[in-house]
């Protein structure tokens, strides 16, 4: 009755196990097309398809002025209550920096 599992063991064996740890937590996802997501991970699968809640999407747009060839970087943000992310666009998944 007074046995307990060792404190160090976490059962992490493969990369996706790390993603599992972030279930129900807020995560940061970097996507192709200069997009970033921050939201709560509700579900994922082996393709890194994900369902995120309370998402803030950040899109970085580079506008090139045709005459001066000057590049203007613009950041567009939007919020979604629930978002399905298709895995083929995912570059990076990480816990948000706790800074």
């Amino acid at each position: 009755m007074d046995d307990h599992a060792p404190l160090e063991s976490t059962g992490i064996e493969e990369p996706l196990d790390l993603v599992r740890l972030s279930l129900d937590e807020r995560i940061y996802v970097k996507l192709r097309g200069d997009r970033e997501l921050r939201g709560k991970l509700h579900a994922y699968d082996g393709h890194l398809n994900m369902v995120l809640g309370d998402v803030e999407e950040t899109i970085t747009v580079v506008d090139v002025n045709e005459e001066t060839l000057e590049e203007v970087i613009r950041i567009v943000k939007r919020n979604c209550e629930m978002l399905f992310v298709r895995g083929d666009g995912v570059i990076l998944v990480s816990p948000p920096s706790r800074a």
């Binding site: 599992a5 060792p6 404190l7 160090e8 063991s9 976490t10 059962g11 992490i12 196990d17 790390l18 599992r20 740890l21 972030s22 279930l23 937590e25 816990p95």
Partner: peptide, 20 residues
């Protein structure tokens, strides 16, 4: 790895317990 005296409870360790 030798277990150090005071076990640190890093967040991912705790998250691992929860998943188990």
């Amino acid at each position: 790895p030798p277990s150090p005296g005071p076990v640190s409870t890093k967040s991912h360790t705790v998250l691992g317990w929860i998943e188990n």
